[in-house]
Design a protein around this nucleic acid. Sequence first.
DNA 1: GTTATGATTTACT
DNA 2: GTAAATCATAACG
Length: 203
Amino acid sequence: MHKLLNTKFLKQTPVEHVAQKLLGHHLVTNIDGIKTVGKIVELEAYCGRRDKACHAYFKRTARNEVMFAEGGVAYVYLCYGIHSLFNIVTGALDEPAGVLIRGIEPIIGEKHMLKRRGMSTNTPNLSNGPGKISQALGITTELNGELIGGPSIWLEKGGPVNDEEVLVGKRIGIDYAGEDKNLPWRFAIQSPYVGHKKGLWHR
DNA sequence: GTTATGATTTACT
DNA sequence: GTAAATCATAACG
């Protein structure tokens, strides 16, 4: 229990394989002296080389720079100016790939998550979206490039997940990616914190 | 219950 | 100038 996931795990390829294995593990943040833990229940894989949906597909920019780093660092990206999206970089150096965390289940520090989100009751609304989990866990762009396994953020080994529990779906909101938008690189496990439309998921 | 639209920062296909 | 890996809100059935 409470076994840390080593960063070698994150350097494996392909990214969609790592992504699937990350399901069920625990994401831990320790920010401002507050420790919060959430179980990863929904995520998407991005691979810059073959995936047009990835920001790093075409060109390396200051914004994407972190994604070219070695697997095991955090890539925090401000989306639409108000939402911090949290990604885990995977793969080798100069191999842009990452996993976007889309949903978690609160495990420890639920009260703090509620407070950060300005909520009083725990509903799936707490952490069923990428921007929300960042806010709930206290993740900001200041964590961009931070080593996962460092003092502020790390992963702990969670319970095993049966393959039968893993849901697969298409990614959304990336119409510009052309054919790649149909890649089944979105993974989740059954949880009230995975909502969205019916029919999207399949096993 | 669902579907449509605005907000707001960053980068450039 | 346009588009984006989103969320909250409003309107509808």
